Simulated assay, not measured.
Amino acid sequence: MTVRDVREVLGARVLAGEEYMDREVRSACGSDMMSDVLAFSKDHSVLLTGLCNPQVIRTAEMLDIVCIVFVRGKKPDESMLEMARERGLVVLATGHRMFSSCGILYQAGLNSGAI
């Protein structure tokens, strides 16, 4: 699956990183707690979160996450989007809730991978 596929199945808007839409995504992690993301996320993954603060961008960078999806209609501010652009991250936003977003991606063939 690619980031473009993630955008399509979630009906998400691209907020940053349009030029990276063809990157491969191998797994997904959904959490508002960055400590859980640090413990369980894998590289080439998509992070689904409703947490809108710079720590999300920093966490994604540390873990080689290729795409962040803000759920529940959350929208990061411009400074966060600029941080994401500087780090080559794709940022998407969807109106779906976290549970629904994860289910949609799972149904489309994306999984979390084994712990």
Rank of each mutant, 00 (worst) to 15 (best):
V46C: 04
V71K: 05
E24Y: 00
M83I: 01
R13S: 12
S79P: 00
G109W: 02
V46A: 08
G109K: 02
K74N: 05
G73F: 12
V56G: 08
A108V: 01
M62F: 13
L89A: 07
V37Y: 09
V90D: 03
T94I: 07
I104R: 03
E78G: 02
F70I: 00
L51N: 08
V25Y: 09
T49C: 05
V91L: 01
E61Q: 12
V66E: 08
C67Q: 05
T49R: 05
A108R: 08
V90H: 01
E78N: 07
S41I: 15
I104F: 03
M34N: 04
R97N: 15
E78W: 10
L51F: 07
S101G: 14
Q107E: 15
V69M: 00
N111L: 04
S100F: 02
C102T: 11
Y106T: 06
S100P: 00
K42T: 07
D64F: 02
R97M: 09
G30D: 14
G73E: 03
L48P: 09
I57G: 01
G50K: 04
G95H: 15
H96W: 14
V71P: 07
I57D: 02
M21P: 03
R85N: 11
A28V: 11
R58F: 11
M83H: 06
E86S: 14
S101P: 06
S79C: 00
G95K: 05
A108N: 13
L63S: 15
Q107R: 04
M33R: 10
K74L: 08
M21K: 00
K75C: 05
Q55L: 15
Y106H: 12
A60I: 08
V66M: 00
A60R: 04
D77W: 00
K42F: 00
I57A: 00
D64A: 12
C67P: 11
T49I: 06
S79H: 07
E24F: 03
L51P: 02
L15M: 05
E19S: 05
L47K: 02
T49V: 02
E82N: 12
A60L: 13
H44F: 09
I104L: 14
G73P: 02
L48W: 10
Q55C: 13
G30P: 11
S100I: 04
F40E: 13
I65W: 01
G11D: 10
H44R: 14
A108T: 10
E19Y: 00
M83S: 07
E86Q: 15
